[in-house]
Simulated scan of single mutants.
Amino acid sequence: MDLKEVMAINLRRVRHHQDLTQEELGALAELSMRYVGSIERGRVSASVSVLGRLAKALNVDPCELIKPLR
């Protein structure tokens, strides 16, 4: 599994755990809902800057979004 897929899975998991919609997360991170959805589907690779914005919006360490689950 590549890092893009790992981030997609982790982002969706954390977002659901916090009971946020893609639209709400996008607003918190100042990103479009469509872009958040594309990241969650693994269609685009998020930049380090976007990773940081998402992590800040979710109040998690950025490493939590790219750490492979075992």
Rank of each mutant, 00 (worst) to 15 (best):
D61H: 12
V14K: 10
Q18R: 14
R53M: 02
L25Y: 06
I9H: 07
L69F: 08
S32R: 05
K56R: 13
G52H: 10
L11C: 12
L28F: 10
V48I: 15
L69I: 13
R53K: 15
D61L: 02
I9G: 04
A46S: 14
P68Q: 12
R43M: 04
I39F: 04
R41H: 03
L65N: 05
I39A: 03
I9V: 15
S32N: 10
L65C: 09
A55P: 00
L31G: 03
K56V: 08
G26W: 03
R43W: 01
C63Q: 15
T21C: 00
G42A: 04
V44Y: 05
H16Q: 14
S47R: 06
S32W: 03
L11N: 08
M33F: 01
P62G: 09
V14M: 06
E5P: 00
A57G: 12
H16T: 09
K4H: 04
L54S: 08
S38D: 15
A8D: 05
E64R: 13
V36F: 05
D19E: 03
Y35S: 03
H16A: 02
R41A: 09
N10A: 12
G26R: 01
V14C: 04
L11Y: 11
M1P: 07
Y35K: 03
L25G: 08
L25A: 09
L3N: 08
S38L: 11
V14L: 14
M33C: 02
N10S: 10
H17D: 06
A8Y: 08
M33H: 10
R13I: 07
R43S: 01
L58Q: 10
R41N: 12
P68D: 14
I39P: 05
A46E: 07
S49K: 12
G26M: 05
R53Y: 00
M33P: 00
V14T: 13
C63P: 00
I9W: 02
S45E: 14
G37V: 02
D2N: 15
K56M: 04
K67H: 12
G52V: 09
K67L: 12
A29N: 10
N10Y: 10
E23R: 12
K4D: 01
L11R: 11
K56L: 11
R53C: 02
C63R: 15
G26F: 01
M33L: 03
E5S: 11
V48Y: 07
N59Y: 01
N59H: 11
V50K: 13
R53F: 00
S47P: 01
A55W: 05
T21H: 01
L51Y: 05
V60H: 03
L54G: 04
I39V: 15
G26Y: 08
V6E: 03
L20T: 04
